[in-house]
Simulated scan of single mutants.
Amino acid sequence: MNYDTFIVPPGSNISLKKNYDPAYKTDFNQKADAAIKLQADIERLANYQNILYAQNTYALLIIFQAMDAAGKDSTIKHVTSGVNPQGFQVFSFKEPSTEELDHDYLWRTTKALPERGRIGIFNRSYYEEVLVARVHPEILKKQQLPYLPEGNKIWKQRFEEINGLEKYLVDNGVIILKFFLNVSKSEQKKRFLERIESPEKNWKFSDNDVRERVFWDDYMNAYEEVFNHTSTKLAPWYIIPADRKWFTRLVVANIICTKLQELNLQYPTVSEEHRQQLIGAKRILEQEDEPMNLKDKGKNK
């Protein structure tokens, strides 16, 4: 599978409607085949995570952005089903708290960054500040900013700040993968209706979800601006077709595994002194069995 298809080329001006099909599924025609491939990648990810944790050099930050009902939660659940919780963390960012509004807009996500050796997932992220805040500019008035640049200068400023942050992170060993789950408006409607009609899914639905659909085109324009200004060589955006959840999970899992494979992760090598300590420890442990063996020999006489 050629994943260049899903990357937003740095410096480009893409159109979600023209360049990216939410229903695209490449040459995979059967969900059963995709399930086999997904399971293989789940196992690969578990193995890579073990080495990442042991090496303790890199951290992996995975960012998910999407419209409501695009499948972020289920994608995270399925793709990471085999990872060790000890080296894994997920943060979901919703409306900022009073404490968070008393800091700069990057504060709440920066303090949640994964440590070296760990995989961290942001379910929504600092990109909300150039998406939701752009569609609903009244949000900026709550952020207690010292001043607001005129026109669209605030968004250009934030794009530059975000690019600067991501370059800093990558330079310091935080590998960044950014996924936009590209669901169509018609598929979102279908999933909303399923949530309303299924009692076990009612809790997932809010009437605010329907109200936000009115701003669909505004959100698409805001996302395009984000992709065109923040898809960089160091941290490109991947636009993942999301009308078929099975295909979304397949692509996301394989991209994560491919990125970890590219890091050429290795288990740490021990010093000669440490190796000698291991040999000594092995000798001591093996000698613990000798008294038991003598007793057994006595019983057999």
Rank of each mutant, 00 (worst) to 15 (best):
L145E: 13
V170D: 04
K301Y: 13
V83Q: 03
L131V: 08
L101I: 12
Q65P: 01
L181C: 08
A222N: 09
Q277G: 06
Y126C: 02
G117V: 02
L45M: 10
F179T: 05
A32T: 09
E225C: 06
Q39R: 07
L285Y: 06
E95D: 09
H136L: 10
R124C: 09
L148T: 12
D207M: 12
V8A: 05
L169R: 06
K185V: 14
Q55L: 00
K185L: 14
F93E: 01
A253W: 03
L45D: 07
E99R: 01
T98R: 14
N182S: 01
K31T: 13
R244Y: 14
K94Y: 09
Y147V: 06
N2M: 00
R116I: 05
R134W: 13
D207F: 12
F122E: 12
A242P: 02
M1G: 09
T110D: 10
Y105S: 09
Y24E: 09
V252S: 04
P268L: 03
V135M: 05
K295F: 15
L169I: 06
E262A: 06
D104C: 05
F28Y: 14
E187V: 07
K94A: 07
K37G: 04
A235H: 03
E197D: 08
I284R: 10
E197L: 09
P236R: 00
R158F: 08
T232S: 07
L61C: 12
A35C: 02
K153R: 14
A253S: 08
T57K: 15
T269L: 13
H103N: 14
I255S: 04
E129G: 01
I121G: 03
I154R: 03
K204S: 13
T230N: 04
K94H: 01
Y24D: 04
K297N: 03
Y48M: 13
I154F: 06
P137N: 04
G173L: 08
Y105Q: 11
F180Q: 02
E99M: 06
T5P: 11
K156S: 15
E115C: 02
E138W: 02
E166F: 05
I7G: 04
I256K: 14
Y58E: 15
V252G: 08
D207W: 10
N163F: 11
F88L: 00
P137H: 04
A32D: 12
Y219G: 05
D243I: 00
N182I: 09
K301G: 00
A133F: 00
T248N: 02
S271P: 00
Y219M: 09
H136A: 07
N2P: 06
W237T: 03
F28C: 13
R44D: 11
P96E: 03
V90R: 01
K201H: 03
L16A: 13
K233E: 15
T57A: 11
N29Q: 14
K141L: 04
N228E: 10
V83N: 06
Y267R: 12
